[in-house]
Simulated assay, not measured.
Amino acid sequence: MLSGRNGETDRIVGLDLGADDYLVKPFSPGELAARVRSVLRRTSPELSGETITVGPLQVEPASRRVVVDGTEVDLTPKEFDLIAFLVTHPRQVFSRSQLLDRVWSSSSEWLGEATVTEHVHRLRLKLEQDPAHPRLLLTVRGVGYQLSDAG
């Protein structure tokens, strides 16, 4: 909640009414962005230590291990972060800028959306049986990417 009212009672009422956070004007864009990231972290599914299985894909967060059809796949740290994020949101579509924000904790002002495109390309080479015709890591034309549970 954004408000010009900065009294303790105002903040308590705002939070009690359901606000996830209460930010008093004036505020800096950096503080607003940090608070939004904080709320997103609290509302996003967390990776537990348990293996997550989506189609032929198994992700083991504790060991940062990925297995496809019984074969372990060697991923870079950021490739792992990307696939780990997507397995916690199967079938959900994310734009490149959303992925930059959620996986890289950055915006397209600092990193280009081509960064996401390249990482998706490399993941397809490592995870898909036929990277030219992906069945697991799909492109949703004009929108972004999604992890299919059909694989």
Rank of each mutant, 00 (worst) to 15 (best):
64 R>E: 13
58 Q>T: 07
118 E>R: 15
135 R>P: 05
63 S>Y: 04
139 T>A: 14
75 L>H: 04
131 P>C: 08
121 H>R: 15
31 E>L: 15
61 P>M: 02
59 V>P: 07
26 P>D: 01
84 A>S: 15
62 A>D: 03
67 V>D: 03
95 S>Y: 10
123 L>F: 06
90 P>W: 00
39 V>R: 13
133 H>Q: 14
39 V>K: 09
17 L>G: 03
41 R>S: 06
70 G>M: 02
59 V>H: 12
119 H>N: 15
59 V>C: 08
22 Y>S: 07
23 L>A: 11
16 D>N: 11
65 R>M: 08
36 V>F: 11
130 D>C: 03
64 R>P: 04
48 S>R: 07
110 W>T: 13
27 F>H: 08
56 P>Q: 11
84 A>F: 09
131 P>V: 08
75 L>Y: 05
8 E>W: 03
34 A>N: 09
2 L>D: 06
11 R>E: 06
30 G>Q: 13
8 E>R: 08
50 E>P: 02
131 P>K: 08
91 R>M: 12
70 G>L: 02
85 F>K: 07
36 V>N: 05
33 A>Q: 12
141 R>I: 01
96 R>W: 10
103 V>G: 03
82 L>G: 11
149 D>V: 13
151 G>I: 00
133 H>P: 00
113 E>Y: 08
53 T>P: 02
89 H>F: 04
102 R>Y: 07
131 P>H: 07
21 D>A: 15
42 R>C: 03
20 D>T: 13
70 G>F: 02
35 R>F: 06
125 L>P: 00
34 A>K: 11
16 D>F: 02
136 L>D: 14
15 L>T: 05
92 Q>C: 01
21 D>Q: 14
132 A>G: 05
46 E>D: 08
145 Y>K: 00
66 V>Q: 05
11 R>H: 01
4 G>M: 06
107 S>Y: 10
84 A>H: 07
42 R>M: 06
80 F>V: 02
28 S>Y: 06
149 D>Y: 09
25 K>I: 09
73 V>R: 15
140 V>W: 02
53 T>A: 15
31 E>R: 14
34 A>Q: 12
68 V>A: 08
100 L>F: 03
100 L>K: 06
91 R>H: 10
6 N>K: 07
130 D>T: 10
134 P>E: 01
49 G>C: 04
10 D>Y: 02
77 P>N: 10
11 R>F: 01
20 D>E: 14
124 R>H: 06
7 G>F: 01
102 R>H: 10
113 E>G: 10
106 S>H: 10
93 V>G: 01
89 H>L: 02
72 E>W: 02
46 E>T: 09
143 V>N: 05
149 D>C: 10
53 T>S: 14
149 D>G: 13
124 R>K: 10
76 T>I: 04
31 E>Y: 13
30 G>E: 13
141 R>C: 00
12 I>Y: 01
45 P>N: 13
68 V>P: 06
